[in-house]
Design a protein around this nucleic acid. Structure first.
Length: 501
RNA sequence: GCCCCCAUCGUCUAGAGGCCUAGGACACGGCCCUUUCAAGGCUGAGAUCAGCGGUUCGAAUCCGCUUGGGGGUACCA
């Protein structure tokens, strides 16, 4: 165990987000690689938008991905683990007011009575004269009388943290290298407590990171510009300054910051789409990082072993669902049969509930099918599309699909009838190559194309043109149902065929 | 507006001055396999390394500028 301590601090104001999941993963990989401590902290101070349902979604989503923490809430309502708790900010309120009072006492912060409206007017004025938006410091040096006057007006002050002027804050970001930002660009003295006494994000993050002795702050690039504020706060609080690593952002296809509008961002939505966590985590890890080798299909353990913050990219990465799907297929193919069947269950339930299948296949049926199904599943959710026709009473194929280009309806009906006769003799030998062999002889005798007959049978029996291998499919369907479906197709073809002259 | 960050195939990336007439993967095309669909194998196309200057014997790699993109700039997180 090293003394490395990192954290992920999501706010439960929405379902687990792709970006949060990736940041969590990078923190987790970093901690595990180094034998450090990974901490989960809930930033639930936005009471208006935070809900317990989102909290549960986030925690369960993380667990689904295989991301576990050493300190933090277990699941909603249950006890926490770790000696630096509580791990919910709402339960740490006292520490923020205590810290703010300390800064006030040391004159590192002061009460500001400017109203939001006044601030707004000032901001607009600065904007109009092309000046950087910045608090003008009107309340920075109020006398006791002035303060009393404001109080008498009924104004409730915020607490502002003094940002020094003309100072360069420099830090060495692990992924970006040396970064320098002038304190004049920080927007002036920073509000750390609202007029109702509740703390603001930049303040809570610094107070908590200090209290939890975070050594490395690994987060999205959107916080890069805010880092000097945090550094100043750490200094004022007398805390040591952690190392920073700012991860490249995940982007929409148009290269803007990923948004719900343009990219599916909910991790749970990907789960419901049939992605498996092995693939998801693998994909996320490779968004902005690579091993430097040509390895791409990597398990969580592989990732932990190879992870290196210094090899993280600095430019944004477009989320590419097709590549995720490819990785998902890779991982599905690697799953042991019983495992895959178990994971397919919930998706079969969904098919059943939606009426797309009429009964549930047994584990035996599924494992018989698996060899021909496993390599054809891009996602777990594709299972219904692939083999649903097996678990329906009947199918009604499109007549147009039933008739091969070289045949017409009458020929198709007649040829299917011949094939049906041959298959009918196979009741006791209903196995793939024993169905196939005599049909091939028939094809040979008649001078047909094997593909034409097989496609006609395929469509007659499954209703689709793309299926698992035909004869395996027939075996799975069974003798009776195969013949019944062929018969029905023949009947429909004959009914649709105009009588010949 | 101001500040910061970024810039290699459509996309994810390899590349830490000579190994690069730039490698891999996804997607796309072709061929093989084949009853369809996949999977797999082989193969093709695809990047004047954003542009311009500089440093150097030598630059995708270092520096500067330009352009483009992104982020930040709240009594949001």
């Amino acid at each position: 165990m090293t003394n490395v301590r990192v954290r992920i601090a999501p706010s439960p104001t929405g379902p687990l987000h792709l970006g949060t999941a990736r940041t969590a993963l990078f923190n987790f990989l970093f901690a595990r690689h180094l034998g450090g401590t990974f901490i989960f902290r809930l930033e639930d101070t936005d009471q208006a938008r935070s809900t317990e349902a989102f909290e549960v979604d986030i925690i369960e989503g993380m667990h689904w991905l295989g991301i576990r923490w050493d300190e933090g809430p277990a699941v909603a309502g249950e006890p926490e683990i770790g000696n630096y708790g509580p791990y919910r900010q709402m339960q740490r309120m006292a520490s923020y007011t205590e810290a703010a009072n300390r800064l006030l006492a040391e004159d590192k912060a002061y009460y500001c009575y400017c109203s939001p409206d006044e601030l707004d007017v000032e901001r607009k004025r600065q904007e109009a004269s092309h000046l950087p938006a910045r608090y003008n410091g009107r309340c920075a040096h109020l006398s006791a009388e002035e303060r009393a006057a404001f109080e008498r007006e009924g104004r409730r002050p915020v607490v502002r943290f003094r940002i020094p002027e003309e100072r360069k804050i420099a830090f060495d970001d692990i992924v970006r290298g040396h970064v320098e930002i002038d304190t004049n660009a920080l927007g002036g003295d920073l509000v750390i407590l609202r007029s109702d006494g509740t703390p603001l994000y930049h303040f809570t993050v610094a107070v908590d990171d200090a209290a939890m002795e975070i050594t490395h702050v690994i987060r999205g690039e959107d916080h890069l510009s805010n880092t000097p504020k945090h550094i100043l706060l750490f200094e004022a609080l007398g805390a040591s300054i952690p190392q920073f690593a700012h991860l490249p952002l995940i982007l929409n296809p148009d290269r803007t910051k990923m948004s719900k509008r343009k990219t599916q961002t909910s991790v749970d939505a990907y789960r419901m789409d049939g992605f498996i966590p092995e693939a998801f985590v693998n994909y996320l890890a490779l968004l902005g990082w690579s091993t430097g080798t040509e390895e791409e299909v990597l398990s969580l353990d592989d990732l932990i072993e190879r992870f290196d913050l210094a090899k993280v990219n600095s430019s944004g990465a477009v989320f590419d669902r097709e590549r995720l799907e490819w990785l998902n297929g890779q991982w599905i193919r690697r799953l042991p049969a019983p495992d895959l069947i178990a994971r397919l269950r919930p998706f079969l339930e969904t098919e059943l509930a939606a009426g797309r299948i009429e009964w549930m296949p047994s584990d035996q049926e599924m494992s018989a099918l698996l060899p021909v199904v496993q390599e054809r599943l891009p996602t777990l959710a594709a299972v219904g599309e692939l083999i649903g026709f097996l678990f329906q009473e009947d199918v009604t194929p499109d007549l147009a699909l039933l008739v091969p280009k070289r045949w017409d309806m009458a020929a198709t009906a007649a040829n299917l009838r011949e094939a049906r006769g041959i298959m009918a003799a196979g009741r006791d030998t209903w196995r793939a190559h024993e169905i196939e062999a005599p049909l091939r002889i028939l094809v040979e005798d008649r001078g047909w194309k094997a593909g034409d007959l097989f496609m006609a049978i395929r469509v007659a029996v499954t209703g689709r043109t793309a299926t698992p291998p035909l004869f395996d499919t027939l075996v799975a369907l069974g003798y009776e149902r195969t013949l019944a479906r062929v018969d029905r197709a023949i009947a429909r073809l004959e009914a649709g065929t105009p009588p010949s002259l």
